[in-house]
């Protein structure tokens, strides 16, 4: 079994896995980073969203061979940034999660959206968040929480 070097949330890991192993299962099973969630396995629900070199991607669609050598951030790394903490606080303030299972993916998508667009309109939120499925339909609160996180970051621009 080949071995790969993965950088996840700033930490380097050497992982033995088949080349076709999805990053999702490497994170969950080999690195015990269970925050990233399995929802569909075909890139249709975005519960497994992570950031790779700062861009939003679905970890079920990346193999370990593809991901090796790139900077990977997962939901566990969210509190490491001011924006991540601000988003989490907004999520709590708006009481967003119901069952909570899709929320790691929602949070990662929101972080990508607010990085690219610090003050998104409703239309921006539709564009940035519609890959992510929530069966509890927490969408109205996600929308509010993104606006709240954006407002709380006003003027800081860190």
């Amino acid at each position: 079994m080949p071995s790969y070097v993965l950088t996840v949330n700033g930490t380097r890991h050497t992982v033995s896995a088949d080349a076709d192993s999805p990053l999702l299962w490497v994170l969950r099973d080999k690195l015990d980073l269970t925050g990233t969630k399995f929802g569909c396995g075909v890139g249709a629900c975005a519960a497994c969203s992570v950031h790779i070199d700062g861009d939003l991607h679905r970890s079920c669609q990346w193999t370990i061979a593809d991901a090796a050598g790139h900077e990977i951030s997962t939901v566990e790394g969210l509190p490491n940034t001011e924006l991540g903490r601000r988003i989490q606080q907004a999520w709590i303030a708006e009481q967003v999660p119901q069952c909570g299972y899709c929320q790691p993916g929602q949070l990662m998508a929101a972080a990508a959206l607010l990085t690219a667009t610090p003050h998104p309109t409703d239309s921006d939120i539709d564009d940035g968040m519609s890959d992510n499925i929530c069966r509890c339909a927490t969408y109205p609160r996600i929308r509010k929480a993104i606006h709240r996180a954006a407002a709380n970051g006003a003027g800081e621009a860190k």
Binding site: D29, D32, T34, G35, T36, K37, F38, V75, E76, L78, P79, Q88, W91, I92, Q95, V96, P97, G100, Y101, Q103, P104, L107
Partner: peptide
């Protein structure tokens, strides 16, 4: 009243069935 499970959910802590890890388990 703020829900008591929400902070753990926002921090993606292991809490679902799929997050269970038992020593020596197979999948």
């Amino acid at each position: 009243t703020p829900r008591l499970d929400i902070p753990d959910k926002v921090h993606a802590r292991p809490m679902f069935g799929i997050d269970v890890r038992v020593p020596n388990m197979l999948v």
